[in-house]
Design a protein around this nucleic acid. Structure first.
Length: 109
DNA sequence: AGCCTGACTCAAA
DNA sequence: CTTTGAGCCAGGC
């Protein structure tokens, strides 16, 4: 299986209203250091939207991807806010509150 | 095989 | 806090 397919498989599991960091996705793919490769894979996302919610992937600090990536300065923000994820003016999301813990989704939050 | 790129991350100045 | 530099990984050429 291609690495990017693995990335998509993971991203596809991120629930609505939650976000995951590139490092988190890389970890779930088995390569904690492959965060860059994750971004590389998402760059050519074959099915944006509910299929592969790449807008739910943010960097380690909860910072959204650069504007050009989603074709607009508020594209990703709109998608996230639409599903209940608050995004501040600087394009940051509260990781403590929206971070996805993984496929198993441990207790608490 | 080698070199380059990037939606990343960490450490240091 | 901002700016650099370096390590990392997969894929495109």
């Amino acid at each position: 299986m291609r690495f990017d397919e693995l990335v998509y498989a993971v991203v596809r599991q991120i629930p609505r209203g939650r976000v995951a960091s590139y490092g988190q996705v890389a970890l779930l793919c088995g390569n904690p250091r492959a965060s860059r490769a994750v971004g590389w894979a998402l760059r050519r996302n074959p099915a944006p939207g509910e299929e592969i919610p790449c807008h739910r992937v943010v960097n380690r600090e909860g910072r959204l991807a650069p504007a050009f990536v989603f074709g607009g300065p508020d594209a990703q923000r709109s998608l996230l806010e639409a599903e209940g994820v608050a995004v501040d003016d600087e394009g940051f999301v509260d990781m403590e509150r929206y971070a996805w813990y993984g496929p198993t989704e441990p207790p608490g939050r």
